[in-house]
Amino acid sequence: MKLPLRNLILLVLMLAASGMAGALKPTKKIADQGPKVELETLIPKGFGEWRHEITSVAQVVDPQQKEMIDKIYNQTLSRTYVNAQGYRIMLSVAYGGDQSDAMQLHKPEVCYPAQGFTLHGKRADTLQVPGGDLPVTRVSTSLGNRNEPVTYWITIGDKVIKSGGIEKKLVEMSYGLSGKVPDGMLIRVSSIDADLARAYEMQDRFSNQLLASLPSESRQRLAGAN
């Protein structure tokens, strides 16, 4: 039985599209090229006015959330730092070697409410850091009498993006067209502080001193090539 010409043309186009999709599917992971990321050594335990506080119990981690995060990321790092005045900053860095559609970043505005926190607000902001402007997201949360403002940013490959959405997809597509699967990193800085303005000011100081303490290559891993 002969196929009508229209159906034959559609069949040819579908087969061609399928072949192109297979040919264009990215296969080379950036994570497998160049030096391997090791968060424990990438992030110093002391810099500027901040020192790692080993005995702190400020972090709250839900076991189910930890199980989910371990599936999404290859490496995670959580530390609490303190300065001479006793102000504490919590740093959380999560690194995933595959930021394709199958592996997505777990953002604070999602994971905090999942742990019982109330989300009070979220806004985009820009942080002045060594090398230029860093797009960040500010999130305000609370759990009972614990007020925890959060500042975070996201890297996909060597680019810092805003909280996600279209920009993230465009960056992933640009890597995909060159046959590469980008890695990704989420850097979260927070503090337990009812004074929102002070919290963000201290978090900015912490982030600036952290990035300024890193060699150029490490700084680019955390804050993008630009």
Rank of each mutant, 00 (worst) to 15 (best):
L3H: 03
L3R: 03
P4G: 10
N7I: 05
V12M: 15
L13F: 02
L15N: 02
A17H: 11
G19T: 02
M20R: 05
L24G: 03
K25I: 06
K28Q: 15
K28C: 12
K29M: 09
D32I: 10
V37T: 00
L39T: 14
I43A: 10
K45I: 13
G48V: 10
R51G: 11
V57E: 00
A58Q: 07
V60I: 04
D62K: 15
Q64W: 12
M68P: 12
D70S: 12
I72A: 15
N74L: 04
R79N: 11
N83W: 13
Q85C: 13
R88Y: 08
I89S: 06
M90Q: 15
S92E: 06
G96C: 13
G96V: 00
G97P: 08
Q104S: 10
L105Y: 05
P108M: 06
P108Y: 12
T118Q: 14
H120P: 11
K122F: 03
R123P: 08
T126H: 02
T126Q: 14
G131S: 01
D133Y: 02
V136C: 01
S140E: 06
G144L: 15
R146Q: 12
E148Q: 10
E148G: 12
V150H: 05
I156A: 01
V160T: 06
V160M: 00
I161W: 09
S178C: 04
V181P: 00
P182M: 02
D183I: 13
S190R: 03
I192V: 14
I192G: 11
A197F: 10
F206E: 07
S207H: 02
A212E: 13
A212I: 05
S213M: 00
P215F: 05
S218T: 11
A223S: 14
N226E: 00
